[in-house]
């Protein structure tokens, strides 16, 4: 059997156009040996989940800087479950107040990475939390 690769969808939900972090991390994930599908801007939760489904992703990484995380992130988790993709690891990043994190985790987002997080920390987290298919 060939070596398994971690496949990750990097997505920008909503209308926010700040994609520096999303693009940077896409490159860092690829350098860490992952297969990265970057979806681009203006993604609805439905589009992100459809991408996760068709790509059979292990991980969905969401980036938001416009303050819409409380709406979008849980919605993505909910739709993943509805599509029988509960095993997909969902992580998020961007401008997200620390006090929002407990609620987001309760909604099923595995981890939230705020500004200034070392990219190694993010890569390590994904590697050790990705679930078997």
């Amino acid at each position: 059997m060939a070596e398994k690769k971690i496949k990750i969808i990097v997505a920008k939900p909503g209308l926010d156009g700040h994609d520096r972090g999303a693009k940077l991390l896409s490159r860092i994930f690829a350098e860490a040996g992952m297969e990265v599908v970057y979806t681009g801007l203006r993604q609805t939760p439905e589009m992100i989940v459809e991408a996760a489904l068709q790509e059979d992703a292990d991980v969905v990484g969401l980036s938001s800087l416009s303050g819409v995380h409380n709406y979008f992130f849980p919605k993505v988790v909910e739709l993943l479950k509805a599509k029988k993709l509960a095993n997909v690891l969902v992580v998020g990043g961007g401008i997200i107040p620390l006090e929002d994190i407990p609620e987001l985790k309760k909604a099923g987002i595995a981890e939230i990475f705020g500004p200034g997080t070392s990219t190694e920390v993010i890569v390590d987290f994904i590697r050790s939390n990705v679930k078997a298919k």
Binding site: E3, K5, S26, R27, F29, A30, E31, A32, G33, M34, E35, V36, V37, Y38, T39, G40, R42, Q43, M47, E50, A51, E55
Partner: peptide, 16 residues
């Protein structure tokens, strides 16, 4: 690195 950037999906947004 064995990794890959798969960018084709971006152009296919309208079919997503």
């Amino acid at each position: 690195t064995g990794g890959a950037l798969l960018g084709d999906r971006i152009r296919m947004t309208r079919h997503s």
